[in-house]
C-alpha cells in the first residue's frame, strides 16, 4: 500500500533507531579510546550506506536516529548495514553488534529533530530486536511500494510495548 501524502507540517516516512548491544561493557573493558573508535566505525559505515532521501538525524549515545523517505530504501539499507557491521566484527575485535528497529509514520519536525508518537513506537521496536537483527512494524511493511530484492519478512506476532496502548504487529527482515 503506498504511503499517504504528508501534510505540510508533518513528514511521512520511516523512523529508524539503531543501538549497539554491549557498548557499555565494551567501554568498561577496553576504555573510552576504543569505544570512540567503535562509534567512529559505526558512523563511517552508516554514512557510506545512506541512500538519497535519507538522513542521520542525531546520535543518541551509541545509538542513531535515522530518517528515510522510502520504506523499501529503509529496509534495504538496514540489511546492508547489518551485513557491513557483521563483516567488520568478524575481522576485528571491535564488536559492532547492532540492533535495528523501524516504523513507518508521520512524525513532526522540530528544530532538525523529529518528535511524536511514531518516533516513540520506533524507539520501542528497537528494544525487541536482537543483535544483528532488523525488526519493523506492520505499517512499514504496508508502505513498501515494491518487494525489496531477496528479503524475507517473518512475522513476530502482536507485540505489546510499554507506553504504547495497542499491540504492534512486528516483522523480522532478513536476506
Amino acid at each position: 500500500m503506498p504511503a499517504p501524502a504528508a501534510s505540510p507540517d508533518v513528514l511521512a516516512g520511516v523512523v529508524m533507531f539503531t543501538d549497539i548491544v554491549g557498548f557499555t561493557e565494551f567501554t568498561a573493558i577496553r576504555g573510552d579510546g576504543e569505544a570512540l573508535e567503535l562509534l567512529g566505525v559505526q558512523e563511517s559505515i552508516v554514512q557510506s550506506c545512506l541512500p538519497g532521501g535519507s538522513r542521520l538525524i542525531k546520535e543518541l549515545g551509541d545509538g542513531l536516529l535515522l530518517w528515510f523517505d522510502d520504506a523499501c530504501a529503509a529496509v534495504e539499507t538496514a540489511l546492508l548495514l547489518q551485513e557491513r557491521f557483521e563483516l567488520h566484527s568478524a575481522d576485528s575485535m571491535l564488536p559492532l553488534w547492532v540492533r535495528i528497529g523501524m516504523h513507518w509514520g508521520r512524525p513532526t519536525p522540530r528544530r532538525g529533530d523529529i518528535v511524536g508518537h511514531d518516533v516513540n513506537v520506533a524507539a520501542r521496536i528497537v528494544d525487541v530486536a536482537g543483535p544483528g537483527e532488523v525488526v519493523l512494524s506492520e505499517p512499514t511493511v504496508a508502505a513498501l511500494e515494491r518487494q525489496p530484492a531477496a528479503v524475507a519478512f517473518e512475522e513476530l506476532g502482536p507485540v505489546l510495548m510499554k507506553g504504547i496502548p495497542d499491540p504492534v504487529r512486528l516483522y523480522r527482515a532478513s536476506r
Partner: peptide
Amino acid sequence: PEGTDILCGAI
C-alpha cells in the same frame, strides 16, 4: 489443535 501456530504478545 496440535500444530497450531501461536503468536503471543504480552508485557
